[in-house]
Amino acid sequence: MNGIISISLSKRFLRVWQRNLTVYQRIWKISFIPPLLEPLFYLLAFGVGLSALVGSILYHDREVSYINFIAPALIAINIMYNAFFENTYASFVRMYYQKTFDGMMATPLFIEEIIAGEIIWGGTKSVIATAIMMGVISFFGLIHYPHGLLLLPLAFLGGIAFGSIGMFFTAIVPSIETFNLPIFLFVTPMFLFSGTFFPIENLPLWAQKLAILLPLTHLVKLTRSFSFGLIGAELLWNFTYLLTFCLIFFPLALFKMHHRLIK
């Protein structure tokens, strides 16, 4: 079984990626809007509304305004959401309801290529959303360039990480409603406790240790550092964490999906 998986993965996954791009091009006007408007809403609510209460925050011995603090976190959250939702709900619909993967399997494509193409598409959606958000956020002068450009390749890495684990869930959930569980137990806690809206140092020590385990914590750390233009060797650890996460969940998603669909 392992042999089949290893030889079945060729660059043909690009064909699957292209299929999703073709669909995206049909509906881009709608897909474009959330990453454009969402940061505006958040910046308005938290940056303008809440920052009056919060004032500024001490981050790595620097005083930063609250709006400056959360803007990079919004990018990280968007990276997570785009890939995770693409490779859970959207992939599940294609797999289960639309039988798109079944159709593809009657061509030279193998299941591993289909799933790899899907996950890499998830990563691509994160990059697209990040680029759009960066446009909006830069308009307020909240991203430091040229370091900020590193956010784009980072969005891809983060997208693959969250897309892979999303696809892993897609391979094991019995029905589409079951996604509520990983969203409630995994995505929502990350949204709140990964150093997104307040520094994780504000948490009690035991919670800080838990937060370190969450992939979004590391992604937020990286987006924030890149946005502030603070590039240091300590970021290597966060990068390594995300990479390792990908290296575990990407093959695991392929394996589980093979298990689910090849009978």
């Binding site: 299929r19 669909v23 049909r26 639309q98 039988k99 798109t100 079944d102 159709g103 009657a106 061509t107 030279p108």
Partner: peptide
């Protein structure tokens, strides 16, 4: 696989 054509029983047309 690259030399055969398949009409599956279920509708696998791409609705997107």
């Amino acid at each position: 696989k690259s030399r055969i054509g398949v009409c599956q029983q279920e509708n696998t047309l791409d609705p997107d």
